[in-house]
Design a protein around this nucleic acid. Structure first.
Lengths: 127, 127
DNA sequence: CTGCATCCCACGGGATACTG
DNA sequence: CAGTATCCCGTGGGATGCAG
């Protein structure tokens, strides 16, 4: 997702929108949430992530990990062994985020039928 | 944001990730949340939205509105007058979504300093 | 006023190959 | 094992112009 934080006024609504957009921008990458969820319960290794997240490329896994680490959502631990061993783990901050995401999850579950129906109706009406 | 729902297994974690991704995909457009929030309290006209949302182009406003309408998050009402008058209003479903988004907002507010600090530290360390 | 059509570009992200 | 480097392409989205 491209940059989209459009905080320009001081209106409460706009400010709230911006806050939400901040979060989304941080987590909006195609693979961010999947990676975060895999790293939520204890440390995970690079290759484990690669296997667990179906369809991700090595390049995107690396980029996603770096981005999440930079934002303080993931902790990267390197063990200077041969062969190298690197572990990733969600931070407390990231785990707290999951609680709010689970609210979204519940919302999505409750309304998925309605959304699907709405789409079908819309597409049937206009094409 | 490109398509990223990668539901391929039946694992609980993956399923939850998919649900969240469903929501995000629906709302991930650069302008979706801003539009939704403007339409949250009563109907809003096209031009009002255009003025309220700083930086949005006419094209993107239309596309965003259509997408949200299709998903059942927005109701579009056309008054067959001259000149035309069209109003948009958030549905109940969309308003319910705001409650969960406000959780994200709070999270973002609480942790924004930490994220900023983390980024600076990361960038200082590596460049 | 409320759009749709067209053109264009940046960038997210896939495929592939190479490395400490 | 855990990455980095390159190349390439689709698509999201901006700018602009036309229309009912």
């Amino acid at each position: 997702m491209s940059q989209r934080n459009i905080c320009v006024t001081e209106q409460a609504e706009v400010t709230q929108a911006c806050r939400v957009l901040d979060v989304l921008n941080r987590v909006a990458g195609k693979w961010s949430i999947s990676v975060l969820m895999e790293a939520r319960n204890g440390p995970v290794r690079f290759t484990e992530l690669e296997r667990a997240i179906h369809g991700i490329s090595r390049r995107m896994l690396t980029l996603t990990l770096r981005s999440l680490e930079r934002d303080g959502l993931l902790i990267r631990t390197v063990y200077p062994t041969v062969p190298p061993k690197v572990e990733y783990e969600a931070t407390v901050m990231a785990r707290e985020l999951f609680e709010y995401l689970s609210g979204l999850t519940a919302w999505a579950e409750r309304h998925e039928p309605a959304v699907t129906a709405s789409r079908e109706a819309y597409d049937r009406a206009a094409g």
